[in-house]
């Protein structure tokens, strides 16, 4: 995909929309009246102190968590109890986890081909060709026949990204993708994500990598206690935070 095409993708088409979303864990009100619109090609960084609900927020977008009030609309489909809706949304939305969550009993190649073969019903050959292409893109094609346990953390996370991309999603969710990595491996994962951002992928990323946020983000959301406290362009957000809580948070992590 060329840069020009990527520009075109930055349209007004709404990919994810949250309207007054509320969620409780038992009595604990974890998401409070969340309103959010993500348009095609937008890169959104979500940050905030631990326990503020940022992971829960993106996990609601592919229904790994259920919200109790409000509407979540992904690619025009409302997430409700209808399993068909959930299935359709999940095919269109990729997710990368903090703990990689590769399937340890399958090789890298099998990890990448499992969903395309069994969910998209692609022929094995085609799935493998696609997988190889994405593995090359994350520069790990030479490890395709290894098992995840034989790879380093950074390599595993890159495989996890490739595995998600094999489903050809139009939105990618990243849940603290570099938090479980050794410092020298963070960069290799971030590089892959930067590439992805340049290609016009719609991305929502929970992370504390502020350098990364400055490079790729269109918007930064700051959450605390289940609410979106502040929302701004990255430069404005870092240089000129509005609320006291944001200032406190930034002073602690920068």
């Amino acid at each position: 995909m060329t840069a020009a095409q990527a520009e075109q993708h930055n349209s007004d088409e709404v990919m994810v929309e949250l309207r007054d979303v509320n969620k409780w864990y038992g009595d604990f009100h974890v998401l409070k009246n969340i309103n959010l619109k993500v348009t095609k090609g937008e890169r959104i960084i979500i940050c905030g102190p631990s326990g503020c609900g940022k992971s829960t927020l993106i996990r609601c977008m592919n229904r790994l968590e259920e919200h109790q009030k409000g509407d979540i609309i992904v690619s025009g489909i409302t997430l409700d109890d209808d399993l068909k809706h959930i299935d359709t949304v999940r095919r269109d939305i990729g997710m990368v986890f903090q703990q990689f969550n590769l399937f340890p009993h399958l090789t890298v190649m099998e990890n990448c081909c499992l969903a395309p073969i069994w969910v998209q019903k692609k022929p094995r050959r085609e799935a493998e060709a696609t997988a190889l292409q994405y593995l090359e893109r994350v520069q790990i094609a030479d490890q395709a026949s290894k098992f995840p346990g034989q790879l380093s953390g950074g390599q595993q996370q890159r495989v996890a990204i490739a595995r998600s991309l094999c489903m050809n999603p139009s939105i990618m969710l990243f849940d603290e993708p570099t938090s479980a990595l050794d410092p020298e491996m963070i960069k290799e994962v971030l590089d892959v994500m930067v590439d992805l951002a340049h290609e016009g992928m719609t991305m929502l990323c929970v992370t504390h990598e502020m350098g990364f946020a400055k490079t790729v983000a269109n918007r930064v959301l700051f959450m605390d206690a289940g609410e979106i406290i502040e929302e701004n362009e990255p430069n404005e957000f870092f240089d000129n935070p509005q609320s006291d809580r944001t200032k406190l948070f930034l002073s602690q992590i920068l």
Partner: peptide
């Protein structure tokens, strides 16, 4: 670990497929 079934779900695998293959 719970992450295994979550990863399978996130990839769109149904309950039975995720059980069978993952």
């Amino acid at each position: 670990p719970k992450g295994q079934s979550e990863a399978a779900e996130a990839l769109g695998l149904s309950y039975w497929k995720s059980m069978t293959f993952v």
